[in-house]
Amino acid sequence: MFDDQLLRAAATGDAPGVREAIAGGADLEVRDAHRRTPLLLASAADHVEVAEILVAAGADPDAPDDRHDTPWLVTGVTGSVAMLRALLPARPDLTITNRYGGVSLIPACERGHVDYVREVLKTDIDVDHVNNLGWTGLLEAIVLSDGGERHQEIVRLLIAAGADVGLPDGDGVTPLRHAVTRDYHEIAALLRAAGAR
């Protein structure tokens, strides 16, 4: 009974319901039909207070669902800085990867989550991690973007964090070449200023 209540309360952001379920002995790692834990449901819906309660109670930030999403990985998709901060005390594994082989930084770069990228780069996350597609966060900020201001800022942040501007994709195409091919002049200028060729 309390397990079901915890899943429902976490999914809807019902903090008092979460506290009550935990007090009643609910399993913090109970799974729904898609193997999502309460913390993953809260993370995906950006219910920060609920996540804080679950983290304080000892919930696992790395528990994967049936799509290999975890509470931590989902923060890179949603771009929630508040959720990132809520999960850090649980010491998430920053090397854990999603179904595409990417760490949380990579989808954040693709989606243009500037504030998230700025914040996650303060952790020990690997700025040059390569996913199954052969792309880093820097490459995704170019290849899967419109070259606009948000992605330009992400490129600036990645360069400042020490990203390897010459690291090519799986086909040997460099970030600069991708930027030039797409007529992303501002990004190309940033890469050249950082020594890219």
Rank of each mutant, 00 (worst) to 15 (best):
residue 1 M to G: 13
residue 3 D to R: 06
residue 5 Q to H: 04
residue 5 Q to I: 02
residue 6 L to M: 09
residue 6 L to G: 00
residue 8 R to N: 14
residue 9 A to C: 05
residue 10 A to G: 06
residue 11 A to D: 00
residue 22 I to H: 02
residue 22 I to M: 06
residue 25 G to E: 02
residue 25 G to T: 00
residue 25 G to Y: 00
residue 29 E to F: 01
residue 30 V to E: 00
residue 31 R to A: 02
residue 36 R to N: 01
residue 40 L to M: 02
residue 41 L to Y: 01
residue 42 A to V: 13
residue 43 S to P: 02
residue 45 A to D: 06
residue 46 D to L: 06
residue 48 V to F: 04
residue 48 V to S: 03
residue 48 V to R: 03
residue 50 V to P: 07
residue 51 A to C: 03
residue 52 E to L: 05
residue 52 E to Q: 15
residue 53 I to T: 07
residue 57 A to N: 07
residue 57 A to E: 10
residue 57 A to R: 05
residue 60 D to Q: 05
residue 62 D to N: 14
residue 63 A to E: 15
residue 64 P to S: 09
residue 66 D to W: 03
residue 67 R to H: 11
residue 68 H to G: 00
residue 69 D to R: 09
residue 71 P to G: 09
residue 74 V to K: 11
residue 74 V to G: 00
residue 75 T to K: 04
residue 75 T to M: 07
residue 75 T to I: 07
residue 76 G to T: 06
residue 78 T to N: 08
residue 78 T to E: 09
residue 80 S to D: 04
residue 82 A to G: 08
residue 89 P to G: 10
residue 89 P to F: 12
residue 90 A to G: 09
residue 91 R to C: 13
residue 92 P to Y: 08
residue 92 P to S: 03
residue 95 T to F: 08
residue 95 T to K: 09
residue 97 T to H: 01
residue 101 G to D: 12
residue 103 V to N: 00
residue 105 L to E: 03
residue 106 I to A: 15
residue 106 I to D: 08
residue 107 P to D: 09
residue 109 C to G: 13
residue 111 R to I: 14
residue 113 H to T: 06
residue 115 D to N: 15
residue 116 Y to P: 06
residue 117 V to W: 15
residue 117 V to P: 11
residue 118 R to P: 03
residue 119 E to D: 13
residue 120 V to S: 05
residue 122 K to R: 14
residue 125 I to C: 10
residue 125 I to L: 08
residue 126 D to I: 00
residue 127 V to T: 09
residue 130 V to G: 07
residue 132 N to V: 06
residue 132 N to F: 12
residue 133 L to I: 08
residue 134 G to N: 11
residue 138 L to C: 02
residue 141 A to E: 11
residue 143 V to W: 03
residue 144 L to D: 09
residue 145 S to F: 15
residue 145 S to Q: 06
residue 146 D to F: 13
residue 147 G to Q: 06
residue 148 G to S: 15
residue 149 E to Q: 09
residue 151 H to A: 04
residue 152 Q to F: 15
residue 153 E to L: 10
residue 155 V to N: 08
residue 156 R to S: 15
residue 157 L to Q: 15
residue 157 L to R: 11
residue 159 I to Q: 08
residue 160 A to C: 03
residue 161 A to R: 11
residue 162 G to Y: 12
residue 162 G to Q: 11
residue 163 A to W: 07
residue 163 A to P: 12
residue 165 V to F: 02
residue 165 V to Y: 07
residue 168 P to N: 00
residue 169 D to G: 14
residue 170 G to N: 15
residue 170 G to M: 10
residue 171 D to A: 15
residue 173 V to N: 03
residue 176 L to V: 11
residue 176 L to H: 07
residue 177 R to W: 09
residue 181 T to Q: 14
residue 182 R to Q: 12
residue 183 D to C: 08
residue 186 E to F: 14
residue 186 E to P: 00
residue 187 I to W: 10
residue 187 I to S: 02
residue 187 I to C: 05
residue 189 A to P: 01
residue 191 L to S: 07
residue 193 A to N: 04
residue 194 A to I: 07
residue 195 G to W: 01
residue 195 G to F: 02
